[in-house]
Design a protein around this nucleic acid. Structure first.
Lengths: 193, 193
DNA sequence: AGAAATTTGGTACGATAGTGCCACATTTCT
DNA sequence: AGAAATGTGGCACTATCGTACCAAATTTCT
């Protein structure tokens, strides 16, 4: 269901934002009709009025969240200064794109939860596929603008190194996936730059 | 709760096996008291009699499942013939250790679900940490016995490449994480061997 | 054998879930 | 302004969940 009135559209957005917040804070399991409504300050029935099912609400939330991430990445690409692409700064840039700019671990967890969740929820596949394809080409553009010659295959390799490092870092005693990814990524970049 | 009688112990094991099956087939969400009991052919109350909580049941199930994987890996190590470690055979061996010998995708999904789930369920951390440490040293031993000089850091890199490739492969239109991992792993092994 | 410990399984309870319902309010359109 | 469409929100229904309970059966121990 899509809203037809301005106020309705605002409420719909509020629900989506609430769902995103729940997704980040508590993962897929935390997205419930009542929890979304309460977080948005709206009545329970609004969730079923604007979304046919929870799956649809989750999909829309992941969609908006993913595209916000991509928009952020495009902004970073636009403002990128090829002169200032020294090792460390560039490494952080790539990490910002792959893990998000925030330090908090939960946002990182969600990035990987949604990948793995796609293995069990086929309805997420089209969306997740589109998002990952766009992220890949965004990274390629950033490498190119930074003056680093790189193939699409190599971009894939770097993403795999970061992703693999992160999922393994999640089981460490005090998880710092970004730090772990930073180490591996820096080493990989040094190897080829 | 731990069983004190032989029959009780058998029932307990049956519940654990049932939980493992549910975990593989449907992920964490599928492990419910009633589902476990039904799959084991036992009454509902048996699940609360032998396990203080669902979390404990899940933990025990993941524990047994993980150790079975490690035992399989140790068997492969024991029977490993250093003469027959040609590229392809060795690549498959490593994949068997990291993804399991079966072709089915669901078992692979579970291997990564449990990693990511640890990000939200702290009670899984000690177990998952132990399992990944053991897997790492097992892989190191296999490389060594196969006559391939390798550092622990390099083993970590190879694991990261496989893991990162797999989680990204899960969103492909028709996911074949093992095939994707095989490509990347073979390339990585060729690069250093 | 007989007492004690353990196991069994049917049942019930309270919480939470998704979703449907519907009288009423608000907004939009003519 | 008045009709039609859209939005609102309180409520309730049914399903499922984890878990507690307890009398009866079984097993273990002395």
């Amino acid at each position: 269901m899509t809203a037809a009135t301005p106020k309705g559209e605002r409420r719909r957005q509020a629900l989506v934002e609430a769902a995103i917040g729940l997704l980040v804070d508590g993962g897929f399991d935390a997205v419930r009709h009542r929890a979304v409504a309460e977080r948005a300050g709206l009545p329970l029935a609004s969730t079923t009025y604007y979304f046919d099912s929870l799956d649809e609400l989750i999909t829309v939330a992941l969609d908006r969240h993913g595209r916000a991430e991509l928009a952020y990445g495009k902004a970073r690409l636009a403002e990128l200064d090829p002169e200032e692409c020294g090792g460390d700064a560039f490494t952080e840039l790539v990490l910002d794109l792959l893990l998000g700019p925030a330090e908090d671990v939960e946002a990182v967890v969600l990035r990987y939860e949604r990948l793995v969740a796609t293995g069990r929820r086929p309805f997420l596949r089209p969306l997740m596929r589109e998002l990952t394809v766009e992220l890949r080409s965004l990274l390629l553009a950033i490498f190119t603008k930074a003056g680093k010659k790189i193939t699409p295959e190599h971009v894939e390799d770097l993403i795999a190194i970061v992703d693999g490092t992160v999922v393994n870092a999640l089981v460490e005693v005090s998880p710092d996936p970004r730090a772990a990814a930073r180490r591996k990524l820096a080493a990989a970049l040094a190897r080829t730059a």
